[in-house]
Design a binder for these strands. Structure first.
Length: 511
DNA sequence: AAGCAAGCCAACCGCCAGCTA
DNA sequence: CTAGCTGGCGGTTGGCTTGCT
């Protein structure tokens, strides 16, 4: 804006200040077309032309108005700045929320997103998203507010169809089904699958969005709201129980994660400069909660590796630390809710048999990309954390997921950061299931999956582990529920008041 | 006050799909 | 069927502003 001087340029048809070139649209005919910022005079000419002739036929603008701009440039100028009913100024909170939701569903379909935001242009939305995302990625933050994912749950739960998303987009339903709505489906499917007993699935072609979503949703602190939303034995409730299960914990209480030791993942790690002897361990910080769902070595990250750097892709990561920007969901207070970080096991895998969807990969890529970024950070931070408390592998494993959030919370940071690594680990020194503290970095293999460990995992699987999950949850659930501001979100989305929630949590605890 | 980095945003570029001759 | 034209879209660039040191 600021650089747009809009000064009257008497030389509208003359040479521009940024250099000229022949129009590349094939309609130049040797005419030197102006480039660079539009002047007020040019705007007047263009507006006048459109008023007389209507939109379209942009290449005729130059012909009939004498404007030395290519058709593309005219169209862009009109669409982005001159057409009526354009909304100027910063995005409102509602619009930001909408953008996040739309982006979660559509990805970088700016024009389509703009169709949902009257008065906003695709360019505006794109710029907004890119700058915001750049900022957040640099900070190691997730991109989507929790409400977006929760909404995805709600939508699916209430049978919202793809058509709704496609509403107004007529003719794009197919696209939506293929690309936009899979996150909803992924979330839902993961719940369906995890509510049942899926102890072990030997074949898994790819990490799915499902598993990630499941993990994300089932991971602290966001696992909190899942059970809470469903006090009765609604399928989601059952799902959430399973989500919180320790089904992939091995005998040591942590997840097998040797699946990331394959060459591809090494390459992936290399691509992020993870070369130290701790690489595997380091990788596990970020990957563990995602890789643990894999029970064979067939996991392929080739696509992930190749696409992981594509940062624009949809993600459903959260929490959102810039809650203010979303207008909702302030960070949970620092209290016992942090327990859930320590005590709640990672959710079991969610298996997505048709997992290789583009969006799933996109989601994963973006996620892993951020994970990788987070890893570098957490690598630096870990020693600090482990100085004051000794983490077991499982804690690391969980903290690997946690690291995502830790990094996240580091914005709030610090001493008051509700989930700051230091605070968590200081307050909750953790030991291995054998009672021995896990001190120091061990080779990845020492606690990562061999068959024996995997077998142990199987033994821990639901339904048996449901009780374990419950016991774990019992430690924290009411506090988590009541102390956390999530209950606002939760109740808002489920029509429950606090009393209901207390009942629900009590029931939950008594189980 | 100056220098630098990051943010912001308008505009450009290349690709693609749809239409038409 | 094909080639050319046109418009649309998403990615990227470059310049100005802002904030920090």
């Amino acid at each position: 804006m600021g650089q747009m001087t809009h000064e009257i340029d008497d030389n509208v048809h003359g040479q521009d200040q940024t250099g000229s070139q022949l129009n590349d649209d094939g309609n130049g005919g040797g005419v030197v077309l102006k480039k660079g910022p539009w002047t007020a005079a040019e705007d007047v000419i263009l507006v006048d032309y459109v008023n007389k002739h209507g939109e379209g036929n942009w290449n005729a603008v130059q012909k009939y108005s004498g404007l030395s701009r290519c058709g593309k440039s005219c169209r862009l100028r009109w669409a982005n700045h001159l057409r009526p009913n354009l909304k100027k100024g910063a995005f409102t909170a509602e619009e930001e929320q909408m953008i996040a939701e739309l982006h979660a569903k559509m990805g970088n379909k700016w024009a389509r997103m703009a169709a949902h935001l009257p008065g906003r242009t695709d360019n505006e939305i794109k710029n907004y998203w890119n700058t915001r995302m750049k900022r957040r990625q640099r900070a190691g933050l997730p991109l989507y507010p929790p409400e977006v994912v929760l909404q995805a749950f709600q939508d699916k739960k209430h049978g919202q169809s793809t058509a709704e998303i496609s509403e107004g987009d007529g003719g794009h339903q197919d696209f939506m089904e293929k690309n936009n709505y899979e996150i909803h489906d992924a979330i839902y499917d993961s719940l369906k699958e995890t509510q049942g007993i899926l102890p072990f699935v030997p074949e898994l072609p790819d990490i799915s969005a499902n598993s990630i979503l499941t993990n994300v949703l089932g991971s602290p602190p966001y696992c909190n709201f899942l059970p809470s939303t469903l006090p009765n034995h609604d399928h989601l409730h059952e799902s959430s129980v399973s989500l919180l299960g320790s089904s992939e914990l091995n005998t040591n209480g942590f997840y097998p994660f040797d699946h990331f030791k394959d060459n591809t993942s090494d390459k992936f790690a290399e691509s992020f400069g993870l070369h130290s002897p701790l690489d595997h361990g380091a990788s596990s910080y970020g990957s563990i909660c995602y890789s643990h769902s894999l029970s064979n070595d067939n996991y392929s990250t080739s696509k992930l590796a190749s696409e992981a750097m594509k940062s624009e892709l949809p993600s459903l990561q959260y929490p959102e630390t810039e809650f203010g920007s979303w207008g909702t969901s302030p960070p949970p207070p620092l209290n016992d809710s942090t327990d859930i970080f320590i005590h709640s096991p990672q959710p079991p895998y969610a298996l997505d048999s048709g997992s290789s969807s583009s969006l799933s990969r996109c989601f994963l890529n973006e996620f892993l990309c951020q994970q990788a970024k987070t890893l570098g950070y957490s690598k630096n931070n870990w020693p600090e954390s482990s100085n004051s408390s000794v983490a077991t592998p499982v804690d690391r494993a969980e903290s690997s997921a946690l690291n995502v959030y830790e990094t996240e919370w580091e914005d709030y940071a610090d001493p008051v950061s509700p989930f700051g690594a230091t605070s968590i680990l200081n307050e909750h020194p953790v030991v291995g299931t054998n009672g021995k503290p896990w001190d120091g970095w061990e080779p990845f293999q020492t606690f990562s999956g061999n068959n024996e460990k995997l077998q142990s995992v199987d033994q821990v699987l639901a339904p048996k582990n449901e009780n374990q999950s419950m016991s774990l949850l019992n430690l924290t659930w009411p506090d988590v529920l009541l102390a956390s501001d999530w209950h606002e979100l939760y109740s808002e989305h489920n029509g429950m008041n606090q009393a209901d929630m207390i009942d629900a949590s009590d029931n939950f605890t008594r189980q």
